[in-house]
Amino acid sequence: MVFAPTPQLTVTVDQPNDHPELHLHPGGQGVWQARMVISLGVDVVLCAALGGEIGQVLEPLLVSEGVDLKVVVRDSGSGGYVHDRREGSRQEIADVPGQPLSRHEIDELYNLALGEGLRASVSILSGPNEPWLVPADLYRRFAADLGANGGRVVVDLSGDHLGSVLESGVFFLKVSHEELIRDGRARSDDTEELTRAMYELHAGGAETVVVSRADQPALALIDGELFQVEMPRLEAADPRGAGDSMTAGVAAVVARGGDIRTAIRTGAAAGALNVTRHGLGTGRLDSITGLVDRVRLVPADSRQQERTTPDELAGRVVER
């Protein structure tokens, strides 16, 4: 189950040759994640709230992605953006974030998605495109209800939404080093500092943690051990979206009963291939499979090894 509270309509103007082209796609983190899960051969139920004209356009577009779409109809309109890529790089023309989900919409979407999530072995709780569109506490409730019933919760969140979901615990967390620094969980992009933050996230409720780093190998904390995710370098065409591929790859492999190491290697391979082409959430199953074997998890722990004496241990007792 992919929980995508606020899918967006993405409109992109492109001009690969003489004539301009107009591309209409559904977008947003949950949609990109769902697309990648499907490309890895796993069925997706997508739970979303849609409304207004944009929502009407989004509905058939989402269905054509191949997801089993479950919709809550909103009173206010869905959001979207218009990008111009004719000059090569993306230029934003307009960004319409949409309205926050109303109390009623939240309740309805929660009930719908919880019902679907309880039937799924893995649930991805994707974030809203703007943090203020969906209250963070919803994620805490969601993770608690799914986790208590044997569901595995996979997230790529930051800020308050991450803090909330950790209170209930998650099976897998992907977060970028920029987000860790922005949230004050890490003071710098120093490996040691990121490692410390990862152990804290682990202690705080994330069973497995992957931290992506812009141009350095990602770090993975698996069963309390730190690994560096090493993979062949591919020339990146669009650096966005590699994180969604990691999250989706992990969810897809775990949903099929795979182990977490294979899941992370698959996610990394999916991410590497995704960035070699335009269009978020694409990547073909066979080419990903070919790359998984070349992704290695290298033990990377270099935590400080302290030395202590029995006297020192005794001295650490808090004064009574």
Partner: peptide, 17 residues
Amino acid sequence: TVAESGHGFVRTSLEEP
């Protein structure tokens, strides 16, 4: 290992000095 509240575990080698 010593669990430091909020900081996970610290590995320690326990020995007489």
